Amino acid sequence: MATPPATGPLVTRHTLADEVRTLGVRPGEILLVHTSLSSLGWVCGGAVAVVQGLLDALGPAGTLVVPTQSGDLSDPATWGNPPVPSEWWPTIRATMPPYDPLVTPSRGVGVIPETVRTWPGALRSAHPLTSFAAIGARAGTVTRGHAPDCRLGERSPLARLEALHARVLLLGAGYDTCTAFHLAEYRIPSPLVESGRPGPDGWESVTEVSITSDRFDELGHDFERDRPVVRATVGAADARLFPVADAVAYAERWLATHRPRDDDFPDPRTHPAPSERRDDPRS
């Protein structure tokens, strides 16, 4: 059977840069990008060309930020995609390599974030499960100080992005991928959860705010209905552009109303997880 011909549109580094500029991406800004490479069309140069195009649009004073999560550095007892036999769990816990921002690959976020992670000069934050990688003028400011017991809260790059007036670009990705919404979970009453992971001194247990992307699609639909979101097409992909701060503020109100919660959940703003505190994210 013959291989079907490639389907377009044909996307290049230069067409992508032009189209995200038309969308409203400005030179010098900080951009948190969630991507789906396959949604763009036929990209000449693949993920490398997409990263180049985004950097072209941002210019030398801009900063590109992506999630580089590594959720496989977690307790095998919680794995479901796929699960592993319970008799393996002790060996996995004893031998799993700890997080190393230079070598631990990202998982489940696509090829473009992994390309950013390995880009010359890229910096990566310190959380073993929910790190971010950044390239550009403010990369150090964004990634510095990511507390190991604060996945996506006040001591994470998300809070820094909010304070620095960064914007989110969804490039072929849906609102279910919008990590900015998670910062809102740290600002409403939320349960705490204890989890295990490999550490530099062996297996460790950490208590953090419980987070989930459940109903983020609904949240995004309402956010787009009620708040200014710039929409356009980049290649074949639907693209959306909006401020991090707008997304967080809207999600804080929406989640408090639409997600059922137990009244006994501690408020993380007044009962933080161990060693978590609300530092000034601009420092």
Rank of each mutant, 00 (worst) to 15 (best):
A237W: 06
D201K: 02
L37H: 13
P266T: 06
V209M: 06
G136F: 02
P97Y: 03
Q52V: 05
A237P: 00
V206W: 08
T233A: 06
F223T: 02
W119Y: 10
S210F: 14
G8A: 09
G46N: 08
E114P: 04
Y99M: 04
V25S: 06
T130K: 05
V84G: 01
L171W: 05
V20Q: 01
G121S: 04
V229S: 02
Y186S: 11
T207C: 05
F181C: 13
A6I: 12
A239W: 00
D279Y: 07
S213K: 07
R124M: 01
V142G: 00
T270N: 12
P5I: 14
R269A: 14
S210H: 13
E194V: 11
E114M: 10
G199I: 08
V33K: 14
V50A: 04
S36P: 07
D226W: 08
T130F: 15
L123S: 07
G59Q: 10
S195P: 00
T3N: 13
F242C: 00
E162N: 05
R225G: 04
V230M: 12
R225D: 14
G202Q: 13
A184I: 04
L170F: 00
P268L: 10
E19Y: 02
T7C: 08
R138M: 08
G121C: 03
I211K: 03
F223C: 01
D262V: 00
V103T: 15
D280C: 10
D149L: 04
G71S: 14
Q69N: 10
S283Y: 14
R107S: 15
A2S: 11
I92C: 02
A232S: 09
V142T: 02
H182E: 03
R138Q: 15
W89T: 05
V11W: 09
E114A: 14
A236I: 11
V234A: 08
A180S: 13
R231K: 14
A122H: 06
V248K: 13
L54P: 00
P157W: 11
S275N: 15
T78D: 15
W89N: 08
P27C: 06
P128D: 11
L40Y: 02
P148D: 15
G145S: 07
E87C: 06
R215S: 12
T12C: 07
V51C: 04
E208P: 02
W79Y: 15
A147R: 13
D246M: 04
A256S: 14
P120E: 12
L37N: 03
I92W: 03
L55M: 09
R231E: 11
T68E: 07
G202N: 11
Y99K: 00
P157E: 14
L123V: 11
Y186M: 12
G153V: 05
V230A: 10
V43R: 00
H14T: 08
A249V: 10
S74F: 10
R187H: 06
E276Y: 07
L32W: 00
G202C: 11
R160E: 03
V20R: 01
D149W: 07
P76G: 13
R269C: 13
T7S: 13
L170S: 02
V168K: 01
G153F: 04
F132I: 05
D56A: 06
V209N: 02
E114V: 09
D226P: 00
V25M: 05
